[in-house]
Amino acid sequence: MADLKPAEVERAKLHFDIYDFEGIGKVDALHLGDLLRSLDLRPTNAIVEKNGGTKKRGEKKLTLEEFLPIYSQVKKEKESGAYEDFMEGLKVYDKNENGAMMEAELAHVLLSLGEKLTDAECEEIMSAVAGPADEDGFIKYEAFIKKLMAGPFPEEKK
């Protein structure tokens, strides 16, 4: 790939090999989003689907040669969220302009806007990332966004 540096290709190959669960040089398209996210990208489900991701196991398999152009394309996408975008979006719910919003409103946003989460996914994110609400039910949304964007294992990124 002309627009991928050799180090990026090598890193992509390493991650690709991890998701090649059968050891056949192919990754199930069901795992395309997970594979891209493991490479520090933040594609939406729509972007993953547009680039060949599937919702059922075994529908389609991708080789490394098929994956690299997808990786390159998704790296260029502008649709993935950035810290500033999330901050701006949640400020709408900051009625007191003090960096806090109702925990229930955040859960409602996660359940109803954009790519909607299930109740279980919302509960998992809220318990892992939101931290405890104060006595009035407010949480600091800046800390929430930072923890969420750091990913599941931020201490491993060095």
Rank of each mutant, 00 (worst) to 15 (best):
M1W: 09
M1P: 12
A7V: 14
A7T: 12
E8Q: 15
E10K: 13
E10W: 02
K13P: 05
D17Q: 06
K26W: 07
V27R: 01
V27A: 07
D28Q: 07
L30M: 10
L30G: 02
G33C: 05
D34G: 13
L35K: 11
R37T: 02
S38M: 14
L39S: 11
D40V: 05
L41H: 11
P43A: 09
T44D: 11
N45T: 14
E49G: 07
E49P: 06
K50L: 15
K50N: 10
N51F: 14
G52C: 11
G53C: 07
T54W: 00
G58S: 12
E59Y: 00
K60V: 02
L64S: 10
L64T: 11
P69M: 05
I70V: 15
S72H: 09
S72V: 13
Q73E: 15
V74T: 08
K75D: 09
S80G: 14
Y83V: 14
F86K: 07
F86H: 07
M87D: 05
G89N: 10
K91N: 10
K91F: 07
V92D: 05
V92R: 03
Y93S: 11
Y93C: 11
K95G: 06
N96I: 08
E97Q: 15
E97L: 14
N98H: 08
A100V: 14
A100S: 15
A100E: 14
M101R: 07
E103C: 13
E103Q: 12
A104Y: 07
A107L: 03
H108Y: 13
H108F: 12
H108V: 11
H108K: 12
L110Q: 06
L111Q: 11
L111F: 02
S112V: 12
S112L: 12
S112N: 15
S112R: 09
L113H: 04
L113I: 14
L113M: 14
G114S: 10
G114R: 04
L117K: 13
D119S: 09
C122N: 11
I125Y: 08
I125N: 02
A128R: 08
V129M: 03
P132F: 00
A133N: 07
D134R: 01
D136S: 13
G137K: 01
F138Q: 10
Y141N: 05
E142V: 10
A143W: 04
K146I: 04
K146Y: 01
M149T: 03
M149A: 03
E155V: 00
E155G: 00
E156C: 00
K157W: 04
